[in-house]
Amino acid sequence: MIRWLLAVMLALLAAPAAADELRPAVIELTERDGGVWVIEWKLPVAASRGANAAPLARPVFPEACTATGAPVQRAAALALLGRQELRCKGDLAGQRFGLSELVGGSDAIARMIPRSRPAQTFRLTADAPAAMIAAEPGRWQVVRDYLVIGAEHILFGWDHLLFVIALVLLVRRGWAVVKAATAFTLAHSITLVATSLGYAGLPSRPVEALIALSIVFLAVEVAVVLRSPERRTFTRRLPWAVAFAFGLVHGFGFAGALADVGMPQGEVVTALLAFNLGVEAGQLLIVGAVLALLAGLTRALPKAEVPVLRVSTYAIGAIGSFWLIERVIG
């Protein structure tokens, strides 16, 4: 158990500094006038092996389309951006577009935006790096894809992950954890919806810094409780209030990730709801896993419980502090 927990902590220490950023590969096919289409793509550095290297993945466009010129590519922050004009004949339904391949288990987002019909959004995977264009977009396709995207964001978005873990370590008690997690859910749902629909918004840099600060704050609270179990801090007395306050900030982070992915025209509410449900599913999985680990540790190695929790807390606090400094001055 101790070795397993230490392995988890080492993995957390190796987490990237840009922890909250969901950086999918994105490819978009947009119709212009007179049978002219434009295909644009964004390949993260991980997918393109750097801005100056030939990308592992290349855009795939429908067979009814031909390129009218050479592609234009440029480097951006941690991504390679590309654009190419196409001339397409007839209906594109039943034809494929996307990327030639996806490596490393990564996902991608593909969007097809015609002028006179609803847009279609697809989630591409390593097994299916290209999508089949449908005559009409399916609502269940949107639900499925955005549900997975939301779950992946919290499971692989290290800062949201560490916040939830630290919250469980602080509260520990089953019903109190449920109330705190519910408050966090309600809060980030409010700001996620408000931001995605254009009613609110904050610059990404202060949001990212505040998210890192929330991790440091909870880590300090857990360390205080471990040192003085009888001490009743405000957070320990009202964890749901603290979870709600920081949840509002984390919601802006979720909204930023969703903005990177984009939402399908005509299915904005469906995509937003599915993404949020995916986030909640991932969050419940994290809470259940941490509670199960804590229960197993308490029963199997009661003497090791406090040292393991202390090491875990210091690791979480150190990572959060690094992110905070990097996001403030980096």
Score class of each variant (00 low, 15 high):
residue 1 M to I: 12
residue 1 M to G: 06
residue 4 W to Y: 13
residue 6 L to E: 02
residue 6 L to H: 04
residue 7 A to M: 14
residue 8 V to Q: 09
residue 11 A to V: 15
residue 13 L to V: 05
residue 15 A to V: 13
residue 15 A to W: 15
residue 19 A to Y: 06
residue 21 E to D: 11
residue 23 R to Q: 11
residue 23 R to C: 09
residue 24 P to L: 13
residue 28 E to Y: 10
residue 29 L to Y: 08
residue 31 E to F: 10
residue 32 R to I: 04
residue 33 D to G: 11
residue 35 G to M: 11
residue 37 W to G: 02
residue 38 V to R: 15
residue 38 V to P: 04
residue 41 W to M: 06
residue 41 W to V: 07
residue 42 K to R: 15
residue 42 K to N: 12
residue 43 L to A: 04
residue 46 A to T: 07
residue 51 A to F: 01
residue 52 N to F: 14
residue 59 P to Q: 10
residue 59 P to T: 11
residue 63 E to Y: 08
residue 63 E to W: 09
residue 64 A to L: 06
residue 65 C to A: 07
residue 66 T to N: 08
residue 70 A to R: 14
residue 71 P to D: 06
residue 73 Q to C: 04
residue 73 Q to A: 13
residue 73 Q to F: 08
residue 77 A to S: 12
residue 84 Q to G: 13
residue 86 L to V: 09
residue 87 R to Y: 03
residue 92 L to W: 01
residue 96 R to P: 01
residue 98 G to W: 02
residue 99 L to K: 00
residue 101 E to D: 15
residue 101 E to L: 11
residue 104 G to A: 09
residue 108 A to V: 09
residue 112 M to S: 05
residue 113 I to D: 01
residue 113 I to P: 00
residue 118 P to L: 11
residue 120 Q to N: 08
residue 124 L to R: 03
residue 129 P to W: 05
residue 129 P to V: 09
residue 129 P to N: 04
residue 132 M to C: 06
residue 132 M to F: 01
residue 135 A to C: 04
residue 135 A to Y: 00
residue 142 V to M: 03
residue 143 V to D: 03
residue 146 Y to I: 06
residue 146 Y to H: 11
residue 147 L to G: 12
residue 152 E to K: 10
residue 157 G to P: 03
residue 161 L to W: 07
residue 161 L to P: 00
residue 166 A to E: 13
residue 166 A to H: 09
residue 168 V to P: 08
residue 171 V to L: 13
residue 171 V to N: 03
residue 173 R to F: 08
residue 174 G to W: 15
residue 177 V to L: 01
residue 180 A to I: 08
residue 182 T to E: 04
residue 183 A to V: 05
residue 188 H to P: 09
residue 188 H to F: 15
residue 188 H to R: 12
residue 192 L to K: 02
residue 193 V to N: 08
residue 200 A to I: 07
residue 202 L to K: 10
residue 203 P to R: 08
residue 208 E to D: 13
residue 210 L to S: 12
residue 212 A to F: 15
residue 215 I to T: 14
residue 216 V to P: 00
residue 225 V to Q: 14
residue 225 V to K: 13
residue 229 P to G: 09
residue 230 E to R: 14
residue 232 R to E: 15
residue 234 F to V: 14
residue 235 T to H: 05
residue 236 R to V: 05
residue 241 A to R: 05
residue 241 A to Q: 04
residue 243 A to K: 02
residue 244 F to I: 06
residue 245 A to C: 15
residue 245 A to M: 09
residue 246 F to I: 04
residue 251 G to H: 06
residue 251 G to K: 09
residue 252 F to L: 03
residue 252 F to I: 01
residue 254 F to C: 06
residue 254 F to W: 10
residue 259 A to C: 02
residue 259 A to M: 07
residue 262 G to Y: 06
residue 266 G to I: 02
residue 268 V to P: 00
residue 270 T to E: 05
residue 272 L to W: 00
residue 277 L to C: 15
residue 280 E to Q: 09
residue 281 A to E: 01
residue 282 G to R: 02
residue 282 G to M: 07
residue 284 L to I: 14
residue 286 I to S: 00
residue 286 I to D: 00
residue 292 A to T: 12
residue 293 L to M: 14
residue 293 L to T: 06
residue 295 A to E: 11
residue 296 G to P: 11
residue 297 L to S: 03
residue 297 L to A: 05
residue 303 K to P: 01
residue 307 P to E: 07
residue 307 P to C: 10
residue 311 V to E: 06
residue 316 I to F: 14
residue 319 I to K: 11
residue 320 G to R: 01
residue 323 W to K: 09
residue 324 L to S: 02
residue 325 I to C: 10
residue 326 E to R: 09
residue 329 I to W: 14
residue 330 G to T: 08
residue 330 G to M: 11
